[in-house]
Each structure stands twice: as C-alpha cells, then as structure tokens.
Design a protein around this nucleic acid. Structure first.
Lengths: 231, 231
DNA sequence: GGAATAGTGTCTCTAAGACAGTATCTA
DNA sequence: TAGATACTGTCTTAGAGACACTATTCC
C-alpha cells in the first residue's frame, strides 16, 4: 500500500525457502539433495528450494511444504524453521534471503526411485552451491542438540518401533552409545510412546521386543525432558 | 541477473528486520518499544524495526544492528537471530517477511532520556501491532531456555559483577530461586568470569563481595554447560 | 558486639550408569 | 538345549540441594 511512499526504492530482495531433509541410512544421517535445474549452479546437487510464491503461499512454512511436495513428493513430515540466511553475496543474482526449514523422515518414506533424489552422508557432503554446506551443518547441529532432550528422533522411525530400534536411532543421531536402562527410563519419562497391545517383533533368534507407536498427541509436537537423555 | 527469466513476476515481498531488545528492571525482564512514526499503526508502541536496505546492509544481521543503532543509539549488544516471521496477512501492506533478532543489554546502557524509548514488562505487554506480541513471547522463551545452561544472562549485567548480583539476575530471568552453592559451582564450571584481583564491592553492612569481569573470550560468545544451572 | 550478607565445607538425596539376572524367541 | 537379545531389579556413583559454619563489613 503505502510502501513506496515510506522508503526509497531499493533493489528488490530475492526471497526463497530451502529445506534440509534428513534421514537415517546405515546408521548415519543423510541429507536429500537435488540436481539444480536452473542457473545459477545448474546441474549441481543442492538443497530443495525455491522462490516464495506470494499468491500461492500463505506463509514461508507453506512455501517450504510446497517446495518439498513438488520437488520430492513428500507430503507432511516434521517441518520446522531452522534459520534465515541472507546477504548481498550469497547468491550471484543479488541480495537474497533464504528461510531455511529442516525436516526428518524415515528412509522408507523417501521416494528414491528415479526422480533424481540424491542422498549424501552429512559427514561427507559433496560440493554444494551457495552457503548450503553451512546450512546442512547447522541443521545437523540443531537436530543433535534437540535430540538430547526430546522425542525428535522418532520422526526418523516408521509408525511402529521397538525400544531397541529406537535406541539405535538415538545413538546414531547423537553419535554416542547410551546406557540401556537410562534410555528406557527417559523414553518412559518422555511419555510419547504407547505399546501396541500384544504386538511383538518376532522373527529373530531371541526374545521378541514389544512394538510401540507414537501417541497421537506427539505426531506433530515434541515431547521434552528436563535433563538430557544421555548424561 | 537471470532472475526474471526463471520465475514469473510475483508481487514483491516486503523485507524487514525487527529487534527484541530486552533488559532487566526491578528484577523483571522488560522489552524496549518505540512509538511508530509511519503507517500502518503510526503512534503505537512497537518493536524497533525497519526495511532491509540492500545497498547499505551486507546482511540481515547488519540491518538489525543498523536499525538498533539508528533508532535507539545502542551500538554493539549481544545480537542474535530469533526467528523469521512471514506471511500474507501479518502486514496490511502485503506479503511480508520480518527477520527478528533479539538483544540483551544492561539497563544502565539504555539511553532512556527523552528519545521516545518505552520500557514494557514482558509479563504485561501493551497492545502491539502486527504479530509483535507473539514475537516478544518467543524471545522471552528463548532467553529463559538458553539461560538454563549458558552464560547468556551476563549480557544483562554491566562490566563488573559480583556473584550474588549475577545470581539475582539468573533468578529473575529463570523466574525461580537457585541454590547458592550449586549456582557458584555452575558459574565456576562455565568459566566465563574472572575475579578482578583485590576489587571488592564494599559499602554494605556485611562482608564485601568479590568483583568479577567477563573473560574477553566470552564477550561475544556464550559459554555452555551440559546439565542445567538449576536442577 | 550485633546484624547482615559473602563465601565454603560437608552431608543428604536424587538420578544416571553398571551389572547381572530372568524371559522368550530361533535353530 | 544353545545362543541371542529383550527386559528388569538393584547396587554404585556422580552431582544437585540443604544446612551450617566461618569471614568480613557497617553501625
């Protein structure tokens, strides 16, 4: 409305969203990358991202969800804002903003057929355009840090999970072994899981494990504990 | 550069920064507000904020620092990104982004003379435009949460501080009493303070307290502990 | 000396980790 | 039955909180 009357006409800002989509493969965090179709850096693997469409997207969160859906086919993962990167020099096209979100998803839910999705281990990232490497590093830091006292890693698991499976996931994310008894005490304290009555994970040559599912209250919201899960 | 050839011309996004400047007064967190000079909401107290000036600001952080300097005279506080608010409906002028930063400052360093700065207790905020109330609430949450395991509250103190003074600050921020012995153990563990040799806070009718200063390594960076400062 | 708060030594108590024992499956 | 891992009971240990005692100032 009164915008132009208030401030001088500065060159416009390029407004984009990017998504750090993380999954667990071979006990290690991996990030989903896409070969860029457009310049700059066409052909290089990069984070899924795109312009904010002001007539389509109500918010930047919705823009990120749309980008994720359109570029990877993934519909409603745990999607949370990470940080906003900005500046004159980060994009050769000009002064730009990227509102970055991160998402977690079980490997099985990734459509990895032949739609161009690449998986890169976060410990050994390929050359990436813009400041995407730093962005992935920050996302991993955030996920590790939040996992220390929350239910965040359950979003890396499928609907059904056993405690031994979940412990392996936590250990992979945190990068350190966890005491079994303490781990179970903490998961109990978090209260996000409920046992599926009578359902046991059989098939292995040992006592079967109880199968749990995420309580519906925590499908979209984290559960927290005061003191960390490990130490 | 090739921007327009890649995407259709969407209506531009209004790109702004806002700053939640917090201080401690009467043992309670207060936020600094300014009466808006321009429409919309001219005359209403609001967070200091303004447009990103793409020819002047190298990054959004610099834009926030500039806004703070120009509107309040404060030069280099602890200034960190909080979150980015965005959407079609939050600003009557159109689709907007606000990259929000928060800053902490000792009350004595606030130029509260007659330059229009208002102080509002965060527990009883006045009517504020846009989504500023929610923004302040999030900033307070963030500060409380970070204060549980970091040196963040020292930025609310002046250069010289005693441990009893600092404990009062922590208790005000966290909103709960802290065990004195544990508190001192934790501050020692944080390792951010060094005693000023021979300098004691005298003048009161009791044993004087040792005066400390912030080690230079922590002037701009937080110190962290694994387990919380209280419980 | 009395009052007040600073600073410290030490005991208690809570909760995390270690360890080992029992449970229950496959081969 | 042997081997493997799930689950659980309980002891040990680390660290947070409680309490009390000494230190040092002003009045």
């Amino acid at each position: 409305m009164a915008q132009k009357s208030v401030e001088p006409d500065y060159p416009p800002v390029i407004c984009t969203v990017d998504v750090v989509l993380l999954t667990l493969k071979d006990q290690a965090l991996h990030v989903v990358l896409l070969k860029r179709k457009n310049e700059p850096f066409a052909g290089t693997p990069a984070l899924p991202g795109g312009y904010i469409h002001t007539q389509e997207d109500k918010t930047a969160w919705e823009a990120a969800a749309r980008v994720l859906r359109d570029k990877t086919g993934i519909v409603s993962p745990y999607l949370e804002q990470l940080a906003t990167y900005s500046g004159a020099d980060r994009d050769p096209r000009g002064w730009s903003i990227s509102i970055v979100y991160y998402a977690l998803i079980p490997l099985e839910m990734l459509p990895l057929d032949n739609n161009g999705l690449l998986l890169a281990p976060v410990s050994k990232l390929p050359k990436m355009p813009f400041d995407h490497k730093g962005i992935v590093d920050l996302a991993v830091l955030r996920v590790r840090s939040k996992s220390q006292y929350s239910s965040l890693p359950v979003y890396l698991c499928g609907e059904r999970v056993t405690l031994p499976q979940l412990q392996v996931v936590y250990e992979a994310v945190l990068g350190e072994p966890i005491n079994k008894v303490s781990f179970r005490r903490k998961i109990d304290e978090l209260g996000m899981l409920e046992p599926i009555e009578g359902e046991l994970e059989t098939g292995a040559a040992h006592r079967p494990a109880q199968v749990y599912r995420l309580r519906s209250a925590y499908k979209r919201e984290l559960s927290l504990v005061q003191r960390g899960i490990n130490s």
